[in-house]
Design a protein around this nucleic acid. Sequence first.
DNA 1: TAGATTGTTAATCGATTAACAATC
DNA 2: TAGATTGTTAATCGATTAACAATC
Lengths: 222, 222
Amino acid sequence: MKERKISEAIIRRLPRYLRHVTMLALRNEERTSSGALAAQLDLNASQVRQDFNCFGGFGQQGYGYNVKVLRHELARIMGMLSWYKMVIVGAGNIGTALANYEGFDLARVEVCAIFDHKPELVGKTINNKPIFHVDQLGDYIRENKIDIGVLANRRTSAQEVTDIMVEAGIRGIWNFVPLDIVAPVPVENIHMLESMMVLIYKIHQNQLDEDEEAEEKENEED
Amino acid sequence: MKERKISEAIIRRLPRYLRHVTMLALRNEERTSSGALAAQLDLNASQVRQDFNCFGGFGQQGYGYNVKVLRHELARIMGMLSWYKMVIVGAGNIGTALANYEGFDLARVEVCAIFDHKPELVGKTINNKPIFHVDQLGDYIRENKIDIGVLANRRTSAQEVTDIMVEAGIRGIWNFVPLDIVAPVPVENIHMLESMMVLIYKIHQNQLDEDEEAEEKENEED
DNA sequence: TAGATTGTTAATCGATTAACAATC
DNA sequence: TAGATTGTTAATCGATTAACAATC
């Protein structure tokens, strides 16, 4: 059961599979199939089977996939059988929203602390999580074996904070700063403005298409 | 200058080009080249030229690309010469963070109002933006010709709210709810938990690799 | 002119889809 | 057994990369 060289495209489909199969489990569905999953997730049945078979095949000919088994296998593959400790750097809008977010349990993530550079915030809490000064970030990560660091601070200090976290042994970085940061550990970016711009691009294209249609219609009338 | 059938992969690189070229402009750099951009953005020079040439080629042999021209062309291509009006549905953690966010100007987006179902929030403001009751969402979109609707509410009502917005003529949806919503207009998803799970997958894989290395080392010692 | 770099065609690579034997 | 659906190999499609003539 060698699980190597999985393409980025496949990795990014895994959470969607897990989310969907979890829903099926909640509905008490017992079995599913590549065809059903493909229809529900707007994929191709072959693709679904190819994806699963990267990890060793946990279906049965003539039956399909058992929902409970599939769900557990997906969770195992994604490393979600153990818990991960996380710290948030930046107690601004995004940092605060993340600290208040109640959904991290689903990904087996525990928010341990928040760090900020403003002295007036130090000592306070958000959602019962303590706020420390960013000067203590490295020590805290080392002492508490923190796995994940969230960059939700200002862009000017993003790379600096990254370096501190890497030095202290962080294992992955979740980056909300609109900047490409450099690190020897996995980095996941949430680039909200880029997402927004993609949306605007598509809206704009629709507008152009409509304008063109309207023009053609006008020409017909001539 | 027909701009059609641009692949999703290219569309998703456009905001990064724009972000980088904007930075070059701020640094007062006058020219750049496909080779330089490729090195800076970790892409391939051919790819950069292919991407730009989908939109008609705005470089010059022997010279490269003028930063100002390139920046303006990218902004034009992405539809960022006009402004877009946005409403946020849901005044919870994420909705509040978005209402407070000061960076939307960059994407030419104006936050006009926030909607929530809680009566006690109606009449208040967040960052000087009024909060209305979600019952008024459709009328508000129609009357104010709102372009973009943000789903930052509870998952149970996400599809329902989507239908109301579509009915009222919304042109695009920015979805923060961990759910695949269905709409006849462009939908951009920010699925934070899925991003987190991808990060955890990669951290977990690194762990497996390390464990394996350690094992091999032990075997060597035997 | 010589050097540089584009625009564009051709080659390669990888991901998706189709097909089908294996088998529950 | 017959029907269903997997696991897996082969075919197709599309995206990335290489190559090079055009030209500034």
